[in-house]
Nucleic acid binder design. Structure first.
Length: 271
DNA sequence: CTATGGACCTGAATGC
DNA sequence: TGCATTCAGGTCCATA
């Protein structure tokens, strides 16, 4: 479900509602990717000051530390006043004076981690090697190209790795490369400055548009208020193997890169 | 240091 | 119908 646009859309859907809330209680279900780092009950009494995002992490800024949340592959958040009892895949509840934030995550690749201080804690490691924010001012074509020139792996895998630029997941990587006219298997260090520029623009375009549209919905993405997004109808190549390219009608191809599916047009993305 | 494959976990879809 | 296999939007870790 969640690449950067889905995480950002989720953030926007509940940030203003939870801001300023006092935590009344918290409850953890089955283990997630990492331990919470404290007894959930100890969160009671803390205040949620703001909700930020770094890459695909949400950062709930508390008056005592920060709560990092990651949605993994299958996670989603809901925020509402009255909540039914936790279901089979509800693995974290944050009960506040303004509503309850609930993480549902069937595969449990997601995480909720409390850190007293991101500067010094072990949790800092999670954010330490993240790349540039693609929608921010710091995402600069020249610097992007310079970073790509140090990598010999296929460009698709470099995008997914997240240490050059964050937030580009498996769907949007294929979409951005299609938009830029770049073959996903091309070595990152072989991209000219001009082609790196096109990719830079394509990444911003694809992610920015998805945020505006409310996140993708290849399966069932919905924000924390339960509203679903519309990106599915807009995928140009992802999930369309064998179907005609929207630009040239050539049948789209699907390949495997690092055990992930990649989709591209063999004509529009020649190199 | 970089690159690659395996690991984590559940559920849906597909194949025989 | 039943059972096995494959695949799924992420990313850390061990190994080469």
């Amino acid at each position: 479900m969640p690449e950067l646009p889905e995480v950002e859309v989720t953030r926007r859907s509940f940030a203003q509602h939870i801001r300023g809330a006092r935590i009344l209680d918290a409850r953890a279900g089955l283990p997630l990717r990492w331990p919470l780092g404290l007894d959930p009950r100890q969160l009671a009494g803390m205040t949620v000051q703001d909700v930020d995002r770094r890459g695909k992490y949400l950062l709930l800024q508390l008056d005592q530390g920060v709560l990092l949340m990651h949605l993994g592959m299958s996670g989603s958040l809901s925020f509402r006043g009255d909540l039914p009892p936790p279901g089979r895949h509800d693995h974290f509840d944050l009960v506040t004076t303004q509503g309850t934030l609930r993480l549902n995550d069937p595969r449990r690749f997601g995480a909720v981690v409390w850190s007293a201080d991101l500067q010094t804690d072990p949790a800092q490691k999670l954010l330490a090697s993240l790349g540039t924010e693609p929608l921010g001012d710091a995402f600069d074509p020249a610097a992007f190209h310079a970073r790509l020139r140090t990598r010999r792996a296929p460009i698709k895998q470099v995008l997914l790795a997240g240490d050059v630029v964050v937030g580009v997941g498996n769907i949007y990587a294929s979409e951005a490369l299609f938009l830029a006219g770049i073959r996903p298997t091309t070595r990152a260090d072989r991209l000219s400055r001009a082609r790196a520029d096109r990719l830079h623009a394509a990444i911003r375009e694809v992610l920015g548009r998805a945020v505006e549209r409310g996140g993708s919905t290849l399966r069932n993405f919905s924000n924390a208020a339960g509203e679903s997004g519309h990106f599915q109808a807009e995928a140009s190549v992802y999930g369309r193997a064998g179907q005609p390219c929207l630009r040239c009608a050539t049948p789209l191809r699907q390949i495997r890169q690092g055990q992930r599916s990649t989709f591209f047009c063999p004509v529009c993305q020649r190199a």
